[in-house]
Amino acid sequence: MRIGLAVLRNEFLIYFKKWVHIIINIAFFIFSTSLFSLVAGLEQGLLAEWGAGVIWVVALLSMLLAMPLLFQPDREDGTLDLMLLSAMDPAWLALAKAGANWCVFGLPLVLLSPLLGASYGLEGIALVVLPATLALGTPALILLATVAAALTAGLRRGVGLLALLVLPLALPILLFGVRATELAADGFPTAAPLMMLGAFLLLALGLLPWAAGAALRATAN
């Protein structure tokens, strides 16, 4: 686990050197959500109805953009071998990787989402629930992505396959995240879907690093 923390630290150092990717990710998120609102027209009511769904889907896609960074560079420069050959359990490696990736690419989306939600005409409690769903849902999403990224890390053009593997599995997170925000916008209680998202996150934390570790070992050749 101590080695896992060293990996986490190293990841942050590398991601800050790759700040361009962070900016690209945020710009993609903002610009794509704006595209949807432009296409949908200027009807405020319609926009508010669609807001949660659009923001969630675009958040999913922008995170997908950064998912190849999880293991592909490490695989190419040989550091993945070194990390797998350290005495640390690969599940910790996957967890550290997921943690750093989320902080850098997931957290900004969570923080930006109220702004974008407001631009879509969401109001009041919905502007709190939307970032809350993203805060609970995106880490689980990244954990799913570590498994898929570990499975496809050795492939030269694995990005498309990575997306194909992640998206179906991410469906529950998306449904609960969007629905919770819609319920909040309509003035209904949202505790139940938020708790479900929390349960998904716990389940993902418990199982997926382990699966990702096994996947890293399986594709290490």
Binding site: N10, K17, D77, G78
Partner: peptide
């Protein structure tokens, strides 16, 4: 200890 084909260095660091 392992020294592979690839050096296992992070180009950014």
């Amino acid at each position: 200890g392992w020294l592979g084909h690839k050096d296992g260095l992070k180009a950014e660091l």
